[in-house]
């Protein structure tokens, strides 16, 4: 019947989406564009000369960074090493502390609901605070140095790690554990032969992932006085010594890429 009626008129392809959806999408689209334009106007308000002027200036200014002064690589390496060491210590401590926290925020382990919700909320709030803000506060508490930086990294990575690992624990297959209990294994045996083998590869992979995040975070911690290469970068920028600053940025770039490459290879091998 429909074919008959259509044959009379000129064959018209029916629209895939209903008119209402189309109208909605159009409105959302223009709202997003409008908000974007407004954001652009607002963020450029303080700029002298506006967007065009700044862009033409940009290349002229960027030239100040080149050529980088590679003679200082030897001098900045100790600071870079400190940065890596901070990330290693912070990741290790966070990996240890995360075990009880992850267990507490896994629904299948913590059957006591209020406790589960309390740890979940605590972790959620912890994750909203940016690492550098934590570092600023800890520098205020402990004074300038590596210790507040490490502490900030620990707290920051704890939030991420505990969430990821609690999700892994929640996804554990409970059948092998039940089978073990049925054949007379005690709780310790159940944990070591049933739970640990299921969680360990994921756990290691997540710890490495958080280590990557920590490396990126620790290179900038020094900007607020929390130790590491960021401190040197801040000083060099303060002296307007741009070639040295560029060298530091390149060193950071190379180290971050190298560590991510190795960590990625290990994670691929694990899972």
């Amino acid at each position: 019947m429909t074919t008959n009626s259509n044959a009379g008129k000129h064959a018209q392809t029916p629209a895939i989406y209903p008119a209402k959806t189309k109208a909605q999408i159009t409105i959302i689209f223009f709202a997003v564009i409008g908000f974007y334009l407004y954001s652009m106007i607002r963020t450029q308000a303080e700029m002298v000369g506006g967007f065009g002027n700044a862009l033409s200036d940009m290349w002229r200014v960027m030239e100040k960074f080149f050529p980088p002064n590679f003679q200082v690589v030897g001098a900045i390496w100790p600071a870079m090493a400190t940065t890596i060491q901070m990330a290693i210590i912070a990741t290790t401590v966070a990996a240890i502390l995360t075990v009880p926290l992850a267990l507490l925020s896994a629904q299948n382990v913590t059957t006591f609901k209020p406790l589960y919700y309390v740890t979940r909320t605590f972790l959620n709030i912890l994750r909203t605070i940016p690492d550098l803000v934590l570092a600023v506060i800890f520098v205020g508490l402990f004074g300038i140095g590596v210790f507040p930086g490490i502490l900030a990294l620990i707290i920051f990575s704890l939030g991420i790690l505990a969430k990821l690992i609690s999700e892994t624990i929640e996804a554990v297959d409970m059948n092998p554990l039940e089978a073990m209990r049925a054949s007379g294994a005690n709780t310790l045996q159940m944990i070591f032969y049933g739970l640990v083998p299921q969680v360990l590869p994921q756990f290691t992979s997540f710890v490495l992932y958080v280590f990557e995040i920590n490396i990126r975070a620790s290179v900038v911690l020094g900007l607020v006085g929390a130790g590491g290469i960021g401190l040197v970068l801040d000083q060099q920028l303060g002296f307007y010594n741009y070639p040295n600053a560029m060298t530091i940025i390149i060193v950071i770039f190379v180290v971050v890429i190298a560590i991510e490459y190795v960590s990625n290879k290990i994670r691929e091998a694990l899972i």
Binding site: R42, T43, Q44, V48, M62, I249
Partner: peptide
């Protein structure tokens, strides 16, 4: 591989210390 803050430092030098660098 560039942390956001390092990019921000570069852009602050390039376009001045304002929100647009961000």
């Amino acid at each position: 591989a560039f942390p956001d803050l390092i990019l921000a430092i570069l852009f602050v030098v390039a376009v001045g210390p304002n929100a647009f660098a961000g």
